[in-house]
Simulated scan of single mutants.
Amino acid sequence: MMHRFLQLLLAAALLAHASAGRSADVVVGQVTPLTGPEARQGMAYAAGLKLALEAANRGTHNPARHTFKLVAVDDRGAPEESLQQTSRLIAQSRPLVLTGHVGGPSLSALLKSGLLDRNELLMVGYRSAQILPSSQRLFAIKAGMPEELGKLMTHIHTVGWKRVVLLYENEGGAEGLLAAADAAAQQAQVTLVDRLEIDKGSLDAKVDRVLRAKPQALVVAAGGFVAGAFIERLRLAGAQTPIFTLSNADMEQLAVRLGDDHLRGLVISQVMPNPYKVTTAISKEFNDLARAHDVATPRSFTMMEGYVAGRVIVEAIQRQGTRPTREGMTAALESIHGLDLGGYMIGFSGASRAGSTYVDLSIVNAMGKVQQ
């Protein structure tokens, strides 16, 4: 009898040991526009995430051999639907982490709902045309809007222009954006002669105001759909004013709407490595994977952003060992300092949730090609 008891005890110990060393199945959740005006951004981000997670499943950057699964759900870009879909995804798929939300209103609604806090979930990587309230639940994997505005205003000053009009999309929290734009303009010694809120219903009126103001440069801080519609109207009205946009406008989405004639000369700030040229190790890795697995989604800066988000998530999971948890994600991310993903540095210091300060500029040349 005692011998049988010892056998059972040994079997239980071996089972516990095997369980302790077994890697986890990790669900990464994304609620994003997969249909509607901003669907290109949501789909590109999801494609980049999937590329990174599937590479990890094959053993790349994944020594603990976790199995990653992306669950992407369509919210059509509607904040109320985004919140409902996020709640449903959390209940049904039990993700370890969220990523890739698109749109300030959706993210603001999610933060206000308390859903992240109640479920001890983090959002690692997202896209917004506004500066969001500070939250310990949001980790950015790229430079923020103040850094982008600073880069654009400094370039405008370097060229010799002084009079600038800012056009911005008010997603329900424009105060931070306007303050950042004012600070960037002051630092660069340029003057904001006007600040105009734009949306789908006011484009013609704002085009008229820009024509009357006769600025030397325009800075457009808006999502791809609204930014593209405004630039199209402005160019059709005959204005040749130099235009600068932030990265959330999405170069590829603008290119689909505008074509070479209206894109020519456009300058856009970029916060990701170039997805088209092998200028860094991560660019090569990204392009090699996309080619090897015949990814249907066209390569883009947004797709690269999704890939970087996936790489950061995989790294944070690895740092937790074989049993990663939602609660352990914060400490794992905060332990990342000066991580080189292959020419793109990521680090979170102290209470900072901004993982990078990298900003570069792209310009569309006379041939309609992007130069960086």
Score class of each variant (00 low, 15 high):
residue 232 E to I: 10
residue 232 E to D: 15
residue 233 R to W: 07
residue 233 R to H: 10
residue 233 R to G: 00
residue 233 R to Y: 00
residue 234 L to C: 05
residue 234 L to H: 00
residue 234 L to T: 00
residue 234 L to R: 01
residue 235 R to C: 07
residue 235 R to E: 06
residue 235 R to M: 05
residue 235 R to S: 09
residue 236 L to H: 12
residue 236 L to E: 12
residue 236 L to Q: 14
residue 237 A to S: 14
residue 238 G to A: 08
residue 238 G to W: 11
residue 238 G to P: 01
residue 239 A to Y: 03
residue 239 A to C: 10
residue 239 A to Q: 08
residue 239 A to H: 09
residue 239 A to F: 03
residue 239 A to R: 02
residue 239 A to T: 04
residue 240 Q to P: 00
residue 240 Q to H: 13
residue 240 Q to G: 08
residue 241 T to N: 06
residue 241 T to H: 06
residue 241 T to C: 07
residue 242 P to R: 05
residue 243 I to N: 04
residue 243 I to D: 01
residue 243 I to F: 08
residue 243 I to V: 15
residue 243 I to E: 09
residue 243 I to A: 11
residue 243 I to H: 01
residue 244 F to H: 14
residue 244 F to N: 09
residue 244 F to S: 08
residue 244 F to G: 03
residue 245 T to N: 05
residue 245 T to C: 05
residue 245 T to H: 02
residue 245 T to W: 00
residue 245 T to A: 11
residue 246 L to Y: 12
residue 246 L to K: 11
residue 246 L to N: 02
residue 246 L to H: 06
residue 247 S to W: 06
residue 247 S to V: 09
residue 248 N to P: 02
residue 248 N to A: 04
residue 248 N to M: 14
residue 248 N to Y: 12
residue 248 N to C: 03
residue 248 N to K: 03
residue 249 A to G: 07
residue 249 A to K: 00
residue 249 A to Q: 01
residue 249 A to I: 00
residue 250 D to H: 07
residue 250 D to V: 11
residue 250 D to S: 10
residue 250 D to F: 11
residue 250 D to C: 04
residue 250 D to T: 09
residue 251 M to S: 15
residue 251 M to D: 10
residue 251 M to Q: 15
residue 251 M to I: 09
residue 251 M to P: 10
residue 252 E to N: 12
residue 252 E to K: 14
residue 252 E to S: 13
residue 252 E to A: 15
residue 253 Q to R: 13
residue 253 Q to W: 09
residue 253 Q to M: 14
residue 254 L to R: 10
residue 255 A to M: 09
residue 255 A to E: 14
residue 255 A to D: 14
residue 255 A to V: 03
residue 255 A to C: 04
residue 255 A to L: 04
residue 255 A to G: 08
residue 255 A to Y: 07
residue 256 V to A: 15
residue 256 V to H: 12
residue 257 R to G: 01
residue 257 R to W: 02
residue 258 L to W: 03
residue 258 L to M: 14
residue 258 L to Y: 09
residue 258 L to T: 11
residue 259 G to E: 09
residue 259 G to V: 05
residue 259 G to N: 08
residue 259 G to Q: 13
residue 259 G to Y: 05
residue 260 D to M: 06
residue 260 D to R: 13
residue 260 D to N: 14
residue 261 D to A: 13
residue 261 D to M: 01
residue 261 D to K: 13
residue 261 D to G: 08
residue 262 H to A: 06
residue 262 H to C: 02
residue 263 L to E: 00
residue 263 L to C: 04
residue 263 L to P: 00
residue 263 L to H: 02
residue 263 L to Y: 05
